[in-house]
């Protein structure tokens, strides 16, 4: 195992994940005000109405697929009697479908960003980098899946990528597994980790604001006035008397 393997399949993932976690904590504490979807729907709705749901629902499916594929060991699915071929067919069909939706949605959104004037001028450099990484990861992932399955003997990532990813998570990295995977998977993984490292500093943070609490909270929220009245902090000795 070369030093490069260690670097790519041990160091890079850990650094990326660390940046991902610490970055989010830092951003949440430092920049709650900047934590937003920064929607551009006000400027343009016709393309967004099509592209945005396609992309977002697609990528949610893709995410669920990845969680299943990466975290559930092959032995478990076999234990409940799902044959390898059945699993593979379902995974490929659903994966390609969801991936295609995502990519198509993303294409519409990128096209919209580029051609609709107000949307384009509201696009920051940060957004552009994010788009490159995100679309890059999607294209590589989808391409690997499609091309791999065109060959007679598609690579079974559940023998290499998945156990390697789990080995990272349980802090006993086995870089050799990943080093044995085909180039397509390797590139996809590397771009994905670059995306993870960039994530907390981009608008992608809004993923973690998925407002599921809305389903259960009371409709109208009451809150007490801030301790601080007016617009500057209370000075010592002038605190509110209960």
């Amino acid at each position: 195992m070369s030093a490069l393997d260690i670097l790519l399949w041990v160091a890079v993932p850990y650094i990326s994940l660390a940046v991902f976690v610490v970055g989010h904590i830092w951003r949440y504490r430092y920049d709650k005000f900047g934590w937003t979807t920064r929607s551009s729907q006000l400027y343009e709705n016709r393309l967004l109405r099509l592209g945005s749901p396609l992309f977002h629902f697609g990528i949610l499916l893709v995410a669920i697929g990845h969680i299943g594929g990466l975290l559930v060991p092959k032995s478990w699915t076999e234990a409940v009697g799902i044959s390898d071929t059945a699993y593979h067919v379902v995974a490929v069909v659903l994966g390609v479908l969801a991936g295609a939706c995502t990519l198509f949605g993303a294409a519409i959104l990128v096209y919209r960003r580029r051609t609709v004037g107000p949307v384009f001028s509201a696009t920051t450099r940060n957004d552009k980098l994010m788009y490159v990484l995100l679309v890059g990861a999607i294209v590589l992932g989808l391409g690997t899946t499609v091309l791999g399955n065109l060959t007679a003997d598609p690579h079974d990532y559940r023998e290499t990528v998945s156990p390697w990813f789990r080995s990272i998570l349980i802090l006993r990295p086995e870089p050799a597994l990943m080093a044995a995977a085909p180039l397509g998977f390797q590139l996809h993984v590397l771009v994905a980790f670059a995306l993870f490292a960039f994530w907390p500093f981009s608008r992608l943070v809004h993923v973690f604001s998925m407002p599921l609490g809305y389903l259960t909270r009371p409709y109208v929220v009451y809150r007490s006035r801030d301790e601080q009245l007016g617009s500057r902090p209370t000075r010592r000795g002038w605190e509110r008397v209960p």
Partner: peptide, 22 residues
């Protein structure tokens, strides 16, 4: 997000800019 709230003291309805996610 539950970012809009009604103040219980005086009923003023406000958007918490730190919790609004757009």
């Amino acid at each position: 997000s539950g970012a809009i709230y009604k103040r219980s003291e005086d009923g003023i309805v406000l958007v918490d800019q730190d919790r609004c996610r757009g």
